[in-house]
Amino acid sequence: MSSKTKGSKKLRDLIRVGVFSALWIAAGWIIGCTVGFFPPIMLALPCILAIFGALILVVMLSKITIRGGILISSFLFGICLFSMAPYGLMFICTFVGGIIGEILYDTVGKNNHAGKIIGVVCPMLGLALGEYIPLCYMQDAFKAFYAERITGNMANASMELINTPIVVVLTIVTILCAILGYLWGEKIAAKRLAKGGSDNGKRK
Rank of each mutant, 00 (worst) to 15 (best):
G88D: 01
V173F: 11
G181M: 03
K110P: 03
I79R: 10
K4L: 13
R203A: 11
M138L: 13
L11E: 00
L104P: 09
E148L: 11
V168F: 11
L193Y: 15
G126N: 12
I48K: 02
G201F: 00
L11A: 13
G101H: 00
A54V: 10
M124V: 11
I166M: 13
V96E: 03
P86M: 07
G130E: 00
I70C: 06
S158W: 02
I15W: 03
C177H: 04
K202H: 10
F77W: 07
N111D: 07
G185R: 06
G126Y: 05
K10L: 09
L71G: 01
F52G: 02
T5L: 14
G130M: 05
K191H: 11
R149Q: 11
E160V: 15
D13K: 14
G119H: 06
M124Y: 07
S83M: 15
S74M: 10
V17R: 02
L180C: 04
S3F: 07
C93H: 08
T34M: 02
I103G: 08
D199C: 08
C177W: 00
L125K: 13
I48T: 07
E148W: 11
E186N: 14
C93V: 03
V35H: 05
R67Y: 02
G185H: 00
K9V: 06
T5C: 05
L23P: 00
T94C: 12
H113K: 14
N153M: 07
I25V: 13
L193R: 10
S83L: 15
A44P: 04
W184G: 07
I150G: 12
A144I: 08
I31Q: 10
A44W: 08
I51N: 04
T5I: 13
G53Y: 06
G7Y: 05
A128K: 05
A194L: 12
S158L: 02
I64C: 10
G97L: 06
G196Q: 03
R16D: 01
K191C: 05
S62P: 01
K195R: 15
K187P: 09
P40N: 10
I41E: 01
F82A: 12
R149V: 05
T107S: 12
A178M: 08
F37E: 01
I188S: 04
P134I: 06
K204E: 00
I31F: 13
